[in-house]
Design a protein around this nucleic acid. Structure first.
Length: 832
RNA sequence: GGGAGCGUGCCGGAAUUGGUAGACGGACUCGACUCAAAAUCGAGCGCCUUCGGGCAUGUGGGUUCGAGUCCCACCGCUCCCACCA
């Protein structure tokens, strides 16, 4: 600590963090009317209490973006907050009896301390926490906006029930294996009355506007488009007929994307949950049908939808007439037809649909081919469905039409004759927002026997979460068990009524937090229109790929609804999106026992062996997690090497969007690089160089240039100028394009390597300017070190014309060498 | 099954977008300094070589004066969606 010539980050970083804080260097500047600010945003964390490397990577990336923009002279908004509702707090309450609010606030405080050590340029005055009532009252207010717009409604629905967490999950929270995204439990089905938001009303707009999101990764746009899942087809009606061939008056409506194959339909299948199933089932079939429906309802989503499962079904004893050719065909129910997609009914065309084919073969239903390959008069139909396009046969007046033409012609005929119409179908379902949990934002509704579901008047917001609750972890939510809170007078008629006891999906809270940052202390509105319009849309959003669908889609939906409610102007919230890769750690696993072994128990990293059995271990990189013992604690890295090394390493090690393999040896190498820069500056100081030799005087630079002759410099001077110029161009390009921080850091390292041997021999003016450029370029990546070096070089006391109190007031060099001007002082690097 | 993407040294990754492949870093080897170690500094580091060079970017073709980059086929890997009618 006493040796001033050694780079000791621990000795300088906290000081600079304090200095920035005291100077308010990262406070958000006021924007002039019409002025364009820059909004740099990280996805806010859940306050688990522990900062992990994934957080560090996320926030460091955003911080570099913010710092570069500030150096370029932009006014920057760079906020942070807490996605603070959610199950872990409630689980802590159940397991350890701590109050979820207290637990969460403690975690926020501790994570805030850890974040501060990273030297992030965050404006903490705009901090928000979704669990504080000055935030969630506006979440409730926004819910009422949806309600008023007819976009929030209640319906009884079959929902995903998580038997461990005792709550309902949205479709999106059930993973591909039919398990809860959080507890991992196999999801069951239940019927409950739930609140939904009508995101399907915006399906088309959400899809259309994806095209304009050029600053988003292609794959995220594709994932969203697939999730929305638009398909065009037709809705066709099949009349139910009695045994004697007369119509019963009932209709079965099916949705199909292949109306051209209707002449090949040989049966109709309903989902077991279809509303007409009970009434259409014949007496002899009733027992079988009920047994089958019961079986299906007990199946998990996984069993039901696994593609390799045999398709099962039963006939219900009724029949329909094919509207195209009048043929009578049986009605079946089957597990492969889903109640909540399309109309919950399909026409079975075994010849041209693989699922129908398998089903028909299993139950010996007739197969009628109606499409043949174009240009062939023979049937290409062999033992599997023919799903390609072709030409129609056995289709009456439509014979000979191609698939494409037949789709249009048959749909048109159906429309003209009244048995169908064109129909666009989305895969996207309405968003189920009800959660039977305590630690969430209460839904501001009161249920009254006479008035129905009544919104809580806005002046009564917030509906506060009661704090004196018992957590048993069993049965209904603690809210529903708290009669003193539930019983309330109806705002309409004043009669006794009951509060809604469901809380909102936490995705509700995170769908608008980026708007609140623009005006975080407003207590009249969630945000003023002026404030939100002056900062939104977010210029650069940074976060994990795991939010590619849910959070980003919901946020886009919110933004569009609020725009349509005249609360803001933009239709898309995030102009550019960067999805950073995971941080992976070295993982040791015993391939026989399947157990993960902590690295501390592995004696020899080159020949890892199980400490108990001595068996050789597998070594690989995997996403850091507690259960795999492969995590690296950011605090320990910072204690040892400092925040600047951690920042540089994480930026350098891999391109931001790719997975990053954490390697302690590499961190060491990064630290040594910063040490070399430190020594470089020390060497310059020993020679008596300061920034005053260069930038302090425009005249000095011009005089030096004139003396040397611009095209006739001594080789060292020319080499140095070239090295600096090249680095500036490369770094600017890396940062402007796709944020290739890894190569930008490389260029910086190359520059400092190239500089070291040249500084001793070149003109002091050039040497000083080159050093100044190096330090400024370093500033976004290793801000503490850059500040310290700037000060050591006399950047604050040299009579510098900017009188900079901080290197952050220095202008970032422009990509073309000629523009390397800091106010009136030309930088040396003007000639190639 | 549908979609997106990727394949370059021992490793992470570069390559001015069609122009000297392997930047920068790690690991490794040798040397200097040291009683020694660490740190630091210097050198080497794709493969083969008769030291002239030759061969190398998953495999096989193609376009081009020129291909890691563009086109076709194949092999392998990753991610997302998936009985969505």
């Amino acid at each position: 600590m006493s040796d001033p010539s050694r780079y000791q980050p621990q000795a300088i970083e906290a000081n600079w963090q304090r200095a920035w804080q005291e100077q308010g260097l990262h406070d958000t500047p006021e924007l002039e009317p019409g002025e364009q600010g820059f909004y740099a945003l990280s996805m806010f964390p859940y306050p688990s209490g522990n900062l992990h490397m994934g957080h560090v990577r996320n926030y460091v990336i955003t911080d570099v973006v913010a710092r570069v923009q500030r150096l370029r002279g932009r006014k920057v908004l760079h906020p942070m907050g807490w996605d603070a509702f959610g199950l872990p707090a409630e689980n802590a309450a159940i397991e350890r009896g701590v109050d979820p609010g207290v637990w969460t606030d403690q975690n926020i405080a501790s994570m805030r301390r850890q974040l501060d050590q990273l030297g992030l340029s965050i404006d903490w005055q705009r901090e928000v926490a979704t669990c504080h009532s000055d935030y969630y009252r506006w979440t409730q207010w926004l819910f009422l906006q949806f309600f008023e717009a007819g976009l929030a409604y209640r319906k009884e629905a079959t929902v995903n029930w998580d038997p461990i967490d005792q709550t309902v999950l949205a479709n999106e929270q059930v993973d591909g294996d039919g398990r809860s995204w959080r507890s991992g439990a196999l999801v069951e089905k239940r019927k409950l009355r739930q609140w939904f938001l009508k995101i399907t009303d915006y399906a088309q707009a959400l899809l259309d506007d994806l095209d304009g999101l050029e600053g988003w990764p292609e794959r995220v746009r594709t994932m969203q488009a697939n999730w929305i899942g638009r398909s065009t087809g037709a809705e066709l009606q099949f009349a139910v007929v009695n045994d004697d061939g007369t119509d019963t008056g009932e209709q079965i409506t099916v949705f199909t994307t292949r109306p051209d194959t209707i002449f090949g339909a040989t049966y109709v299948v309903l989902a077991p949950e279809h509303a007409l199933v009970p009434s259409l089932t014949g007496a002899p079939q009733r027992l079988a049908v009920e047994a089958f429906c019961d079986l299906v309802s007990r199946q998990s989503e996984q069993d039901r939808t696994a593609e390799d499962k045999p398709k099962r079904g039963v006939p219900i004893g009724a029949q329909v007439r094919n509207p195209a050719n009048g043929a009578l065909m049986p009605i079946w129910i089957a597990d492969y037809v889903l109640a909540d997609y399309g109309t919950g009914a399909v026409m079975g065309v075994p010849a041209h649909d693989q699922r129908d084919f398998l089903f028909a073969r299993q139950y010996e239903l007739p197969v009628q081919q109606v499409i043949i390959p174009e240009g062939s008069d023979e049937h290409a139909f062999e033992g599997g469905a023919w799903t390609e396009a072709g030409v129609l046969i056995h289709s009456g007046r439509f014979d000979g039409l191609t698939t494409t033409k037949a789709k249009a012609a048959i749909t048109a005929a159906a429309e003209a004759e009244g048995w169908g119409r064109e129909r666009v179908q989305f895969r996207l379902r309405d968003w189920l927002i009800s959660r039977q949990r305590y630690w969430g934002c209460p839904i501001p509704v009161i249920h009254c026997d006479s008035c129905g579901a009544v919104p809580v008047p806005t002046e009564q917001l917030p509906v506060e979460l009661p704090r004196d609750v018992a957590f048993t972890g069993k049965g209904a939510s603690p809210l529903a068990q708290l009669e003193s809170w539930v019983q309330v007078a109806c705002p309409c008629c004043g009669k006794p009524a009951r509060r809604e006891t469901d809380t909102m999906d936490t995705f509700m809270c995170s769908s608008w937090y980026f708007l609140r940052y623009s005006d975080p202390t407003n207590n009249q509105l969630p945000f003023s229109r002026d404030a939100v319009d002056s900062w939104l849309p977010v210029d650069q959003y940074v976060g994990g790929i795991e939010h590619a669908i849910l959070h980003l889609l919901y946020s886009r939906f919110f933004t569009k609804v609020l725009r349509d409610r005249q609360l803001l102007s933009c239709g898309e919230p995030f102009t550019k999106l960067l999805t950073q890769g995971m941080v992976q750690g070295v993982t040791y696993k015993n391939p026989h026992t399947g157990k993960y072994i902590p690295p501390s128990e592995v004696a020899d990293a080159d020949d890892p062996r199980d400490p108990v059995s001595g068996e050789p271990l597998e070594t690989f990189f995997e996403k850091m997690s507690k259960s795999k013992y492969n995590g690296v604690d950011p605090a320990q890295v910072i204690d040892r090497y400092g925040a600047d090394t951690a920042r540089m390493f994480i930026l350098f090690k891999a391109p931001p969007e790719k997975d990053l393999e954490w390697d302690d040896a590499d961190v060491e190498g990064q630290f040594r690089f910063l040490q070399r820069i430190w020594r470089l500056v020390d060497t310059a100081l020993e020679r008596g160089l300061t920034l005053a030799d260069g930038a302090g005087s425009a005249a000095a630079v011009r005089a030096a240039l004139a003396a040397a002759g611009a095209d006739n410099l001594p080789p060292e001077d020319a080499d140095l100028r070239r090295a600096v110029h090249t680095a500036i161009a490369a770094i600017s390009e890396d940062l402007d394009g796709d944020y290739q921080f890894n190569t930008a850091v490389s260029e910086l390292m190359k520059l400092s390597n190239a500089m070291a041997p040249l500084l001793a021999d070149c003109h002091p003016v050039f040497a000083a300017e080159a050093l100044r450029t190096l330090v400024v370029l370093l500033a976004p990546f290793a801000p503490h070190l850059a500040e310290e070096l700037w000060q050591k070089l006399g950047g604050r006391t040299s009579g510098d014309s900017l009188n900079a109190t901080s290197v952050h007031r220095q202008r970032w060099p422009e990509a073309d060498g000629s523009a390397l001007v800091r106010d009136t002082v030309p930088l040396v690097i003007q000639i190639k």
